[in-house]
Every structure is written in C-alpha cells, then in structure tokens.
Design a protein around this nucleic acid. Structure first.
Lengths: 216, 216
DNA sequence: CGAGGGGTTGACGCCGATCAAAGCTGGTGG
DNA sequence: CCACCAGCTTTGATCGGCGTCAACCCCTCG
C-alpha cells in the first residue's frame, strides 16, 4: 500500500477521511467524487487507463493491479486526471484526498519516497508496455499481454482472468478479430486453457518460447 | 533545471561535485562514470533511451531534451540504469552524484517535488508515446514523431534536426525503408523541406491534418 | 422463444516487411 | 584536386500478415 511505513497515529489528525470503495466492472473511478481531488490505491482487481484519440479510437495505455496508485499526477497541483480510469474486474480501492497525501508528506518525509517509487514503477511499466505491446507480430504482443496479466494479478496458480476482446485489441493495437484468431490458436495448441468462467490457465514455459525469451 | 528553486548556498556543503559534460553523438552517457552513481540533467541536445530485446532488436522508448533528467530511478536505491542512454546530437549535461541529490532532498524538501514532477513528466511522455508511436498507420506515426521532435527541441522557427532513419524506425516501429518512403513523400508535398544540413522545417498545420488533429 | 451482445470464422485487399540493387555523401588517401 | 570507399539513403519488386467486411455461432437475459 501507499502508506506502508507510516505509523498508525499518522492518520489521527488527517482533515479528510480515507474511504474504501468497491467498483463494478466498467465503472469510471473518477465519478466517485468531484474531479481531481482523490488519489486511489488499488487493493484488489484490475483497472485500465485509457486514452481516447480525437476520432474516438480508444487505446489502453496501462493496466494497474493491487498495490498500484492512480491519480498521483494530482500532486503536481493540476486539476484533472491524465486519463480516464475504468474498472476491468470488480475493483477494491482506497480513496485518499489529495490534501491528505500532501499533509502526510509534510509530516512524514518517507512518504515522498513511497510516492516516487510508485511513479517509477508506473514508468517502468509504461516502458515495458512500449516494447511489449508496440513491437513485433500480433501473436507475440498477445502472448506478452497474457504473461503480463499473470504478473499483475496472478493468483499463484498462474491463472488469469481473461479480458474482453476489445480491451485486448486496444492494448496490443490490433483488430479484435486478430486477437480472437490468435487466442483460438493458442487454445488449440493447449498453451491456454479454460479452468472456469473467464478464468484461464497459461503454459508459461511454452508461451515464453513464442516471444523468443530464451531465458524461459 | 532539476535544482531550480534551491538557493545557491545549498551547494556549498555537497560532498561530491556536480560536473559538466559534453557528449558527442552516439556516445553512451553512463560510461562517463562508474555505473549507477550519477543522475544527468540535460541542458542542450537530445538523448535516446533504448531497449534491447533478447535477439538484438533495438527499440527507442523515449527521447529526452533540455530540462529532462536521466537516471532518477537510481534514487530508489537500485544499482543500475533502466535503459542504455545514448546521445543523439551533441549533448550538454550536468552530471550529479546520486548521493548529492539525496542529501539535498533531505535539506530542501522542495526538491522532492521537483523530482516528482520530472518523473511525472516522463510518465506523461511515455503515455503519449504509446498512443502516438504505437497506433495507426506508419505515416501517422512518422508525422507524430516529426511534430514531437519540434516540441522537444524546437528552436522557435519550427526547425528540427532530422534523425537517422534507423533511429526513426526504432521509434515508430517500422522498417527504415518505410520511413524513407514516407519522408520522401512528405518532401514531395512540401510538408517538410530542408533548410540546412540535417535541419528541416515543418509545415505544422498541414502535418496536423494528416494525423486527424482537427484542433490543428 | 426471440433478441442482442460478444465471440468465431472465412474471403479478400492493402499496408508495410523483406530482399535486392542502385544513388548519394562525406571522409580518406594518393 | 581527384579517385575511391563505406555507410547511409532511396527506390523497386514481391510477398505475407493483418485489417476489413460479412456471416454465423453461442450464451445470456428478458
């Protein structure tokens, strides 16, 4: 969590409350309060940061799971969020007023480091995204996405909650038909197989071979 | 600069010196000192952050110009840089020991904000990159790149220093031949024309039409 | 049972990768 | 001052991957 490392009494004097929310899939996080006043810390589930190009085409620029923070850009004093943020699964978040974070940063300098590490983590994620989702044939990109899903919200078994086709297409930058064909082929070769409704298991070793990762 | 907002006397007690370097094109910044000890602040010129995939394929994940900082990830206590950083032009930088930044952060909390803003700026840049360089036909991506070059290191006239084909290809994710054909076509239509050796001028209005930016 | 939304599958055309070869250009040495 | 060479750029020909359009399937829900 964003506040790990802070003592419990740190929160005794916060002027505004830290609330806990649960969003259903497809819900826009920002609507839970007036725009640009809250930072969210994700406890469970998956959210997508989307970019809407002039023309209406959507592209997903990041997936964030448990432990990640949303809205840190508000600390720079700007009014709005950079991207619309939408729940993919059912999502469990802490909603923290920006003023509370600023206040706590002043009282506990270690929080500065926490915030910086979150930002750095997102930057690393974005760089990885540029390489994984922006390069190579469609098949490699889809496989990269599946493996990344396992890392972000893997449940230990290596099972992932499969996204909808349009989300995956908006991530890897292809048409939904192409994604459908690729995943169908992966299923035929038993590199991906269903274990429950929307829950799929990955053969990570075999998938890693496809993207040419000789380190397995 | 990274230290704007700090008083001059802040640097009187720094244990290690802040040096000034000039790198020729193609030079790896990290080699100027032992690995993982320095943060660079760019004063002039352009650097590229590159990612080398297993297999040797290079992809450029970011271009940084004057005002940007390189190596902020070292503040997280890790040993190495995330990406190799290579000078594109002749580059003018300040080399700042990580320990100096940490020391100054402790003495001047406002520096925490400066660092956070730099990170946020790079995150915004990365997100924009994902959209601009990862979506749409090759022509749009190249035009986006040219316009972005003008923003990062524009000299006011709207002139840009043209990159080499292989760099542009590594940015937009196409072959060098495709980039060459696209730029040749732009020249034919007088949307781009040479004003000096490697210096080109852009017709921004007309180029904006290509990428469908109705706000032009 | 019918409607609708997502997923699947096929046919076809085009964009862009690839291979190949021919200009250009700047640097080097005679 | 010129010839030469290496690396970069340009251009052409060909081919495959993937976008697009269209039809169909399947599951859910009213």
């Amino acid at each position: 969590m964003l506040f790990s490392g802070l003592p419990d009494e740190a929160f005794d004097r916060t002027l505004q409350p830290i609330d806990h929310f649960i969003f259903p899939p497809g819900c826009l996080l920002h609507e839970s309060g007036r725009s640009g006043e809250f930072i969210f810390s994700i406890r469970r589930g998956l959210v997508k940061l989307i970019n809407i190009a002039p023309g209406g085409v959507q592209r997903i620029v990041r997936l964030l799971g448990p432990g990640s923070s949303v809205g840190l850009e508000l600390l720079d004093g700007e009014k709005g969020y950079r991207h619309p943020v939408v729940a993919v699964n059912e999502v469990d978040v802490c909603r923290i007023p920006v003023t509370t974070v600023k206040q706590l940063q002043a009282d506990y300098p270690v929080l500065h480091d926490q915030v910086r590490e979150r930002l750095q983590e997102q930057l690393d994620r974005a760089d990885d995204w540029i390489v994984s989702m922006g390069t190579g044939p469609a098949k490699e990109r889809v496989v990269n996405l599946l493996l990344m899903l396992g890392e972000i919200c893997g449940d230990g078994n290596g099972d992932i909650e499969m996204l909808h086709l349009d989300d995956m297409a908006a991530i890897v930058g292809t048409s939904i038909e192409t994604v459908s064909r690729i995943i169908a082929e992966l299923k035929r070769h038993h590199l991906v197989y269903k274990v429950a409704n929307h829950l799929y298991r990955l053969d990570r070793g075999a998938l890693s071979v496809i993207i040419g990762d000789t380190a397995g």
